[in-house]
Amino acid sequence: MDTNILDKYAKTLMDYALFIEEGDYLVIQGYPEAMPLMERCYRIALQKGANPQVLLRHQLDEILLKEGSDKQLAFESPVAEAVMKNVTKLLNIGGTSNTKYLSGVDPKRIAYYRKSGERISQIHRERVERKESDWCLCMYPTNALAQEAGMSLRDYEAFIEKACLLDREDPIAAWQEVQRSQQKIVDYLTGKKTLEIRSEDTHITMSVEDRIWINSDGHTNFPSGEVFTAPVEDSVEGHIRFSYPGIYAGQEIEDIRLTFEKGKVVEAKASKGEGLLQALIQTDQGASRVGEVAIGTNYGIQQFTRNMLYDEKIGGTVHLALGSAYGKSGGKNKSAIHWDMLCDMKQGGDIYADGILFYQNGKFIDKPVR
């Protein structure tokens, strides 16, 4: 990645996405491939008077998942617990040399392993809700991610630049404009009681009464570009077909079709990877319910990349997440998973709020109609 773009990337992450301040305990997690970005973020954090620490990620959990006992899979790391109890800013940088390294692992063991880490994850979620900590997820371009997206590395780097608005002269000002634009959508949806989504092989309804719509404007996720909330837990009804593959732990599940009754998945089918789909839904009681409903607004992202950080933001799509809800949206669903699945709305898709059509064919309508 071009050094000037890397400098912009790090500055935007530190000054806008996480807003690093003096005295912050910043933990940067990433794979060795992302060291150029980690180094720049580390240096900026020092200049700001923060206390940065780097924790390198690895792919050795493949060995644990294949060879470890159930007791070892369930082990709670005291190091991870100490980090989650004390960190004030957490930056996770994705980008590895092999996105398929868990493809040979039994899906049930993956689900069990994820569930075993739930208590420690919950510690951090509760601190975030109390505004004691904050976090951000971003990606560093690698050959593996580029191959997943069907691009060359140079093209993938250009894709990230555009998606993150790093191609702008002042990316922070550009993201501030995104915040203002999306807030108009949030203001419109605030106070609405029902949501209805129609598209090909999809007709789903839910209550969003008394729930909080969130303007996702490049802080928790970078890039971002979505508005979202949590449906009332027992209100989701109908059926939905996800247009794009669902990606979990590097494995693909294709042509996912879910049917809901009283908020719970009662039927789940897939043309590929149905075993993993069923295992994930059975992770725990909350895994079969919707923790998030969202509308993607980043029209700078138009290509499916098999990376949900980008894909769920595609302008002209909606997505549902099975599992844990974000507390700031008013959601109460708890689960060890939060798994986003994506539905294209650009060919005949409609969204209604309280019976009023406000979104059609992948775009918001200037004047909503009943």
Rank of each mutant, 00 (worst) to 15 (best):
S329C: 13
L357A: 09
D134C: 03
I337P: 01
A144F: 00
E129C: 01
H219L: 14
Q29C: 09
K328G: 02
L64G: 11
G30N: 09
I356Y: 00
L6E: 03
K193S: 10
C343S: 09
S207H: 12
L18T: 06
E261Q: 12
D354L: 09
V208F: 08
Q360A: 12
S224A: 15
P245Q: 12
A287F: 08
M14Y: 05
Y244E: 13
S77R: 02
H58P: 00
V227S: 06
D344C: 06
D106V: 14
Q53F: 07
W175E: 13
I351C: 02
E129M: 09
K184M: 09
F358G: 04
A174Q: 11
E209G: 05
T317R: 05
R127N: 07
D311M: 01
G225V: 08
F159P: 01
T12S: 05
L342W: 15
E126Y: 04
I247L: 15
T220M: 15
V265S: 03
N51W: 13
A144C: 00
I253T: 14
I301F: 00
L6M: 04
K192H: 10
A10P: 01
V266F: 07
D311N: 04
G95T: 04
N333E: 08
Q29H: 10
L102R: 15
M206H: 10
S199V: 08
L91D: 01
D2L: 03
V178L: 04
N51I: 11
K85V: 04
V83G: 01
Q29Y: 09
A249C: 08
W339P: 01
K89M: 02
A111P: 01
V236G: 02
A173K: 15
Q278A: 12
E267A: 13
M35F: 14
L102I: 10
S116W: 09
E148I: 00
G296K: 07
R154D: 14
D187P: 00
N92D: 08
S69T: 14
T283G: 02
P78C: 05
Q285P: 00
L280Y: 05
R370W: 08
L137G: 01
F358D: 05
G296A: 12
R180H: 10
R306S: 11
E200L: 15
R130Q: 13
A325V: 04
V54F: 15
R119N: 07
T3R: 03
R43E: 11
K131R: 14
A336R: 11
E169L: 14
W213L: 09
L65T: 08
L73K: 11
